[in-house]
Write a protein that binds this DNA or RNA. Structure first.
Lengths: 152, 152
DNA sequence: CTAGATGCAAAGACTTTGCATAAGA
DNA sequence: TCTTATGCAAAGTCTTTGCATCTAG
């Protein structure tokens, strides 16, 4: 579960799909619901397991197709955590960064952006984007109960 | 080719292996040479292709095994770029960050570290590590000659 | 010598593709 | 309706494993 606010409601996600001319199918509605409600990092398998409950006939390739489509349109973001590829609802509301628990993957947003202060950068580089993430243990995991997985 | 300095010479890498009780085989020497000389991001396939030249019998699994071992001992670092998993000689000399060209993957180091200035972070999080990378176009790619690949 | 490393082959995990059918708009 | 999305099956890609052989120390 994410601590910041959920930046995408289900409706926002569905609206985004419709605007780009995509159909709102049962499966996609289900996908949007999952990501809007969970707010956490989900693997294709997680997503598949979840959707199978409501749509027993759902297939893995549909999950993959929709995850990729939603990523391409910016509704979801992809991450490579230590345990593989994961997806999360993107935070489009405003620019910010994340602290991620390396044990439970709980994510907390914060406003500080290093690009405002960065200096002495190599010249002649046309900056397009950046990544800044802080990894550590959240209060629940600090005690070391669960085996920390190695994020990079 | 990397712009900063090569932080691992072949000897440093071999010494590190020996210190951890590993054997210096022909293939590992070859691997060390490749990463020390190239300084860039290499996929398992790149590595395999390179090693095959000198050791025609080399197998893919040996490449994978050694890449993983070298990563675990910190001689190499893993990255998930847009075109998949890549390895690079780690920069152990001192702490710094990278600017990476999203077209050619050329990498430039810089000294600024956001952790020195970060503030207003959420409480009760035990910080372990961080990532900070800037993506953009290097001077050679700025003109837009090559199709930019999408790093995340 | 002898534990550790390699090469081969095979299996495994994950992801994508082709095509007929089903279902949004 | 009629175009897009789905489910199925199959193939593809990337990575790991088991085991007999080889080799660095």
């Amino acid at each position: 579960m994410q601590v910041g606010t959920h930046t995408h409601t289900i409706d926002e996600m569905l609206r985004a799909m419709a605007q780009q001319g995509w159909r709102i199918t049962e499966q996609r509605r289900s996908l949007a619901t999952l990501f809007a409600e969970s707010g956490s990092y989900l693997s294709p398998k997680d997503v598949y397991e979840y959707m199978k409950v409501k749509y027993p006939g759902v297939s893995f390739d549909t999950v993959y197709r929709n995850l990729r489509l939603l990523s391409e349109m910016g509704v979801l973001e992809q991450f490579h955590l230590a345990d593989g590829l994961k997806f999360k609802a993107s935070c489009l509301s405003h620019h910010h960064h994340h602290m991620i628990c390396i044990s439970c993957e709980k994510t907390v947003t914060f406003e500080f952006c290093p690009m405002k202060l960065v200096k002495d950068l190599p010249e002649s580089f046309e900056i397009q984007s950046h990544r800044f993430e802080i990894f550590g243990y959240c209060s629940d995991c600090k005690s070391g109960i669960s085996q920390p997985s190695e994020l990079h």
